[in-house]
Design a binder for these strands. Sequence first.
DNA 1: ATCCTGGAAC
DNA 2: GTTCCGGGAT
Length: 236
Amino acid sequence: MKQQQKGCDRAYLRKLEGLHPGTRHTEYLFSLFWLLYDSFGPQYWWPGQTPFEVAVGAILTQNTTWKNVEKAIANLKSHRCLSPFAILEMADYELAELLRPAGYYNIKTGRLKNFVKVLLEDFGGDMGQMAQVEDGLIRRRLLEIKGIGPETADSIMLYALEKPSFVVDAYTFRILQRHDMIDSSWDYEMLRGFFMDNLPIDVCLFNEFHALIVMAGKSFCKARKPKCDQCPIRAT
DNA sequence: ATCCTGGAAC
DNA sequence: GTTCCGGGAT
């Protein structure tokens, strides 16, 4: 079972900040972080259990609310199919039926199998073995899998393998654009680099930061009717 | 630019 | 009733 990271608390994060040389961007990012941390509190992602379950969740949650993913994962569990081998051996239509509540069930059936195939063939079905591989290498390997794009790869890296890879998402783009820190020419890798080049490389920090950005995006920095007036990170 | 999909939230 | 998701492939 994946337990809560020990020592991933405010004191630890404060110390991290103190030890890191501050560029202008570093100051912006940390001030953003603390405003989020103080208003939403620690998030302790991933609401997950085993690293494998976290990876499955990362694939199933693509463009889908987490609530729906939980149902699909519950289905896998109740059918005792939450293992690489069980998933690989299941008939497509059968797996699709279990994944149904997560939406895109036919697409996700293929994507899950693609991932599980690599996990079994290259890493003996063991996430721990996958975690042994050097960060850059394993990221590239994950990105080769059809159905795993940059955000899903980084989510698996950070939340399942506990490697310090910053997860960027649509909220990250939106928030930084509205803060005038970036413009629309920035792509995924550039924005990921912005965080990783200006923050201490740390699993606990990246974990909380991305989770907090998601919270801010859901509650305030929405596409349609942003609640800028009440937003805790307004005018950062 | 469009497709893939169910379900929660508004 | 629409909108929108903890995206990615074609």
